[in-house]
């Protein structure tokens, strides 16, 4: 059973998220964001926090209907590709501690 998703709970994690050009220009925000994310930090919770802070990104990283990562979006951190990590699996401690960012990448495809 997941912990409550309320970021007002004590001691949320401070997670850094780096966005690609098209997403930070769409959201009209900085390329690197700092988000308060409930623990344990997972991809789902980071994306929930991202979309809550920047509603323009709803549907741009995750499919609005299925909630799944869009096929040409990738998640990198700590020099690993975390794209296929189960969405509710804990992210690396370095991401949860804010020492390493979670990098959202548009996959290299097309011309």
């Amino acid at each position: 059973m997941d912990a409550p998703l309320d970021p007002r709970q004590p001691d949320p994690a401070t997670v850094r998220v780096v966005l690609p050009y098209h997403l930070y220009t769409l959201a009209q925000c900085a390329a690197e964001l700092v988000l308060a994310v409930p623990r344990p930090v997972t991809l789902t919770r980071v994306m929930d926090a991202l979309e809550a802070a920047h509603p323009r990104l709803a549907g741009a990283v995750r499919d609005r209907t299925t909630g799944r990562r869009r096929p040409l979006v990738r998640f990198y951190a700590c020099q690993d590709d975390l794209s296929n990590l189960p969405p509710d699996a804990p992210l690396p401690d370095a991401v949860a501690s804010g020492s390493e960012p979670l990098v959202v990448v548009g996959a290299i495809a097309g011309g």
């Binding site: 549907g59 990283v61 869009r70 040409l72 548009g106 495809a109």
Partner: peptide
């Protein structure tokens, strides 16, 4: 729209 980031 974009194949990467969906519909706006």
């Amino acid at each position: 729209s974009s194949s990467w980031f969906g519909q706006v």
